[in-house]
Design a protein around this nucleic acid. Structure first.
Lengths: 237, 237
DNA sequence: CAGTATCCGATGCGATACTG
DNA sequence: CAGTATCGCATCGGATACTG
């Protein structure tokens, strides 16, 4: 490793931690696991990380042998992918995420939600079901953020889903009206999709055949299936 | 948390990482899992960590709710123990350790072994078998370190094992002569106990009924059972 | 033994600006 | 799009000294 070693123990946890527990490293691995491969996509998932630091971390991970950097010479399609050893880190990332999902309070994290990050995150977990029309347009209106950040369109097309922030005069199929914190909680599995509709905090309009299975095509976070512990037992990190 | 938040994402991996991936924190958890509960014992397992930082980290972990601090008022037997949430971190620690055990090269870590740390680590995994005499004294002589650090005695007594650095004129039952790096490798499961004896790098003397089952009472690291990948595939962290 | 307060120096990191 | 170099400051953490 290019960086200086801190722990210098023969214990494998210490060795792993020397680089895995560097700032941002676990989250970079998460981005890769979520499917991002390009520098800009990874960066988009880590908006509070400086690009220069991301560059350094990726380089370290490549040097160590966790990642590979392909197509870096031709100026097209450069991408970071896991090596075999890197792929083996998936359970490490997942189990740490699952622990957090189960044990941590959510209140601090839903203050000051980064809207773009949330929508980016949602998009990559949507399910372009064959049953849906092509294209299938969903307009999400966030009713509690500044107007210029409120509208987002999910464009299900050709078995893929695009995210758009500008109104292209879409022929909208389904309209969703919701607060950004509520949306986060639903997407994370912290609150129930249907009960949000029933209590009126989420308004969803469109042909019933699409709205009634909205939770299917909308998707959820990859840890949404992990149940949280009772609120009184949750930790305030 | 008293410290400032870095990631500020609603992602549970990010939330967990806010404190789990602080410097030294994973290793503190390891110490607790290895059975240490007192400040000094924990510190002994982390010789390169300053006590003031350990103090701060423990305080943070207590504040978050991962640890409890018992008996801190009376000046006796103060101890740190896991809460329910903290105990649930065991798989997180283990899986990260197991990944390291499987995938990382060992060469950097066996340069400059901290002898006291190794012996401390060995002691807490020894097995005081009922079959052994009481007391049962093992003298370990490290043949490649400065003379004043070479001798260590394991004292199996009353179903417990003590570690001693001073010759108390012990009535030694078993004598072990070995290099410190070789000892580390055997203890970590990186090399085989018996083959080390056969190739002469480890000399063990005493009644055959004790020496032939030496690997049983000597014990091994808690990740020694995880097999390493082929050397050519290992990562240089 | 079981910590804690203070001090100050190293370095990690973000901001900015730049290249191909 | 895909990074990299430089600069300067904030903060992290080690050393030291101290307390109960």
């Amino acid at each position: 490793m290019t960086a200086k070693l801190i722990y210098r123990q023969y214990c494998p946890l210490a060795m792993s931690s020397e680089f895995l527990c560097q700032r941002w490293t676990m989250l970079i691995l998460r981005e890769l696991l979520e499917g991002s491969t390009s520098f800009n996509d990874i960066s988009r998932g880590l908006p509070r990380m400086s690009r220069s630091l991301l560059s350094r971390r990726l380089k370290e991970l490549v040097e160590i042998g966790v990642l590979e950097h392909k197509n870096k010479n031709p100026d097209q399609n450069a991408q970071y992918t896991f090596t075999q050893a890197g792929k083996a880190l998936e359970p490490v990332v997942m189990i740490m995420a699952e622990w957090g999902q189960k044990w941590l309070t959510v209140e601090p994290s839903v203050e000051n939600i980064d809207v773009d990050l949330l929508m980016w995150d949602i998009r990559r977990h949507t399910n372009p079901l064959p049953f849906l029309p092509n294209p299938f347009i969903v307009h999400i209106f966030l009713n509690d953020v500044p107007e210029n950040m409120a509208s987002h369109w999910l464009v299900f097309e050709n078995n893929d889903v695009d995210l758009c922030h500008i109104d292209r005069n879409f022929d909208v199929d389904v309209e969703i009206d919701i607060g950004v914190r509520k949306l986060t909680k639903i997407w994370m599995g912290w609150e129930d999709f249907d009960s949000a509709i029933n209590d009126g905090e989420m308004i969803i309009e469109g042909p019933k055949k699409y709205t009634k299975i909205a939770s299917d095509w909308f998707g959820q976070s990859s840890v949404a299936h992990i149940k949280k512990i009772a609120p009184s037992l949750r930790l305030n990190y």
